[in-house]
């Protein structure tokens, strides 16, 4: 597994405590899981995602991500309507491992309240959280 110093933690996304990231793209937020989360899970073999049109609240489970011997739930970083899901993950779940912030994205959400994004952590706060949990 990666050391914390080896993790990719881009500046242009915001992070949730459950290790999802969210990034503003026009009027939707794109959501995925962080490099830390994919590294902890190991080789991802399956991603279960909601359907476009589903409405979910912040903290609701929006899907699951599976490695060979573990299942992790995915939680909404903000409330809103799912406008798109990354269909490429159906055949290539490994994209979450290889490109967690780009091709491995999971859902697009039209947020009920765009300011909810600001409540998420920036890179430094997330890094502090990770360092804290390592101790």
């Amino acid at each position: 597994m990666k050391e914390i110093s080896e993790l990719q933690l881009p500046e242009d996304v915001r992070y949730a405590e459950d290790h999802e990231w969210a990034k503003s793209q026009g009027d939707v937020l794109r959501v995925g899981i962080s490099d830390y989360a994919q590294d902890q899970l190991g080789d991802i073999v399956f991603v279960e995602l909601p359907q476009a049109g589903d409405r979910l609240k912040k903290g609701d489970e929006f899907g699951t991500v599976e490695s060979v011997k573990a299942v992790s739930e995915l939680f909404m970083p903000v409330s809103g309507e799912i406008t798109a899901v990354n269909g490429a993950l159906e055949d290539a779940p490994e994209l979450v491992n290889t490109a967690p912030y780009s091709d491995g994205w999971m859902i697009d959400v039209k947020p009920d309240d765009p300011s909810e994004l600001d409540a998420l952590m920036d890179r430094d706060a997330y890094l502090d959280m990770l360092k804290g949990s390592e101790q």
Partner: peptide
């Protein structure tokens, strides 16, 4: 040892 990842993917 087996490639269990491909088996599941």
């Amino acid at each position: 040892r087996l490639d269990e990842v491909t088996a599941a993917r």
